[in-house]
Design a protein around this nucleic acid. Structure first.
Lengths: 202, 202, 202, 202
DNA sequence: CAATAATCGAGACGGTACGTCTTGTCTTGGC
DNA sequence: GCCAAGACAAGACGTACCGTCTCGATTATTG
């Protein structure tokens, strides 16, 4: 599946016929971004995207199955590397730094959008599949590197399942973000990483 | 706010006119349950609930703000205490047991529904408020007891923020449940609790 | 089949529930009439009718299969007896009078609409059925009376198929109306009836 | 106006550049014919014609204003002279013969198409113009000859407007065809001509 | 033989109407 | 006074077709 930037960026295979309009493509995405800043995903309509971008609805539906996937692409496009993968020489520090910037990201409007994608996934298996593939996995790959470095340097026990650790670190943040109980701040980020690293046993 | 069992159970204050029909009330909830077994929350319509329960839509809207709250009540009604709060004498064991039964719950259809409530919360602040109050908090209170016992018995470091530990334990499960990456099993539950207790530091 | 005035006027069988809104009903029809005065049937959209009448599209589609049937009802409603069935004592005079008033009707905007109904019939069997039943037949019944009177008075040969005579008289008018060749005037009407009565044989 | 066979047959004025493709031309017309055998004019789309003929939509729109005119040309191409202009020595016989063969034509699929052209005319003045010029008039000219012969031979009263007689004979048939009330058969054709010639007066 | 033109295929595009759907409100008559 | 039945306004949905357009490829005529 691929309804997106890639297929537009699909390179030099010049097909016959009129070429896909890059203007339309980016107009759609940027209109979507603008709208998502004001309303939540569910309240942004395909019609509004079409109108604001000066594009016809048919063009949208030609390239994306529906507005959710448009929003996903818009999100990916805008997600300029706000959340870098640091390399400080210490795994705990790396994770702390990364989690801090992640918290900043999540607290931003983009973070709200992220939540709404997860919400959409709950009643939309197709979207879930794409979201997982295009989003979670790529991000997870980045983080896995930090993890491996920590093991290589002997900072992290090697008998712990890496996947679990990743969820251990990111799960709490996302949970708080979604359920809205509990604060999200640098301090929390530090406390989480520290707890995970040291353990809570007396 | 109160759209629910309570207001039905509201006692003997005999109002003038025809009394509220207990049949209608429970018919609505049980119809909702049946429908939710087949379709996801978003796809269950208020109309379908009305039709299946032999109740008019007006009656539904009279007692609940909308179908989501109906579903919430239906969920509460059905939610037999699948997730007990164990007391084995060891905090780690308590948490492990509890997390295991929680995993079973989440994996069940009811768990899926739980996810959909969280999804609904993302674009519905009113629902978020009620959900948090009626759900998360009551459950959290239960667990906090286990936590306190652990501290009292000296099994858990007292310098860790309790709220964070709770999210540390439940967050990963919920994250996996929502995003669908990674498995959910007894084994995972054990691994999570063990990692949290021992820490991951070498 | 019956999507129309009748079913609204359907009398005293007071059904439970909210009654059909007479305002909505007549607002739809009158809005349709107004629109049809400006645009041709094909260019009048269901959306425009809804907007102009202050009624929702759903209400329109609830009572009529589509805008064509709305227009048909609107047409019937407005078709105040512009074309009376005269009784002068002479069949030829009766037909001449009737054909004259028919020509006036056809030349009016309503006549144009009539053509568009016939046009619609050519690619819409369902509409054809209703149009024939609700329109042609009722009108034909009126005219048949004049015909019978003529026979009874001995003015008309009784060995001619009555149905053919009716078509002989109205067919030419309608043909001219549809194809737009040839004029439509009182004079033509007289000439037609005279030719039909006298025959063209030398 | 000229969107058609003629302009293709347009002779030797060799223009610069690539010549118009005769294959494309006839492929379009024959694809149109095939489609019109299955669906009615309104339901045959320009896209379908393009696809079936292996021609691009642009090519169609280059040579015809729209699909209706394509169909018109397709119709003309196929319209083998099914309706000859007989010359039996008697005007009434001539008309009877001619009307019989006309009835056969109208009842055929081609006749149905003819109706749909008339339908299209009702909301398309441009098409009406072309249709009248290319169709009605040429046919009418043929018939006028029969009429003149009848007058010359003294079989027909000369004080009757010829145009009216033509409509008197063809109008009823077309009316029945369009409105679908009443049968169309040889018998009817005979009865019509007879009635027109003898008159209906007792 | 190149330059110049016109045509063709493929197919993207803006526009616009369609008919369906769901929501939450309102109205009526029956119990 | 509560209920069922159900009509209603609002408005998004995704689909379909229209006629226009932009490409690159293909022919021919002309210089």
């Amino acid at each position: 599946m691929k309804f997106d930037a890639q297929s537009a960026a699909e390179p030099d295979v010049k097909r016959r016929g009129r070429q896909r309009s890059a203007e339309a493509f980016s107009a759609i995405l940027s209109a979507t971004c603008q709208l998502l800043e004001k309303k939540c995903l569910r309240d942004v309509t395909a019609e509004a995207i079409a109108q604001r971008s000066g594009v016809s609805k048919a063009t949208i539906y030609k390239w994306w199955p529906n507005k959710n996937f448009v929003a996903l692409d818009a999100f990916l496009m805008r997600m300029t590397r706000d959340v870098p993968t640091p390399d400080t020489g210490s795994a705990q520090k790396d994770f702390t730094e990364q989690l801090k910037s992640l918290v900043h990201f999540y607290v931003s409007p983009a973070g709200k959008l992220y939540c709404q994608f997860i919400a959409e996934c709950q009643s939309n298996p197709a979207f879930l599949g794409v979201f997982r593939e295009r989003f979670l996995q790529s991000r997870r790959n980045d983080v896995r590197v930090m993890w491996q470095r920590g093991i290589a340097r002997g900072e992290i026990r090697s008998d712990v399942d890496g996947e679990i650790v990743l969820d251990l670190i990111y799960g709490p943040i996302i949970f708080r973000l979604l359920a809205g109980h509990g604060v999200l701040s640098d301090q929390q980020a530090e406390a989480i990483v520290e707890a995970v690293f040291r353990g809570i046993k007396a």
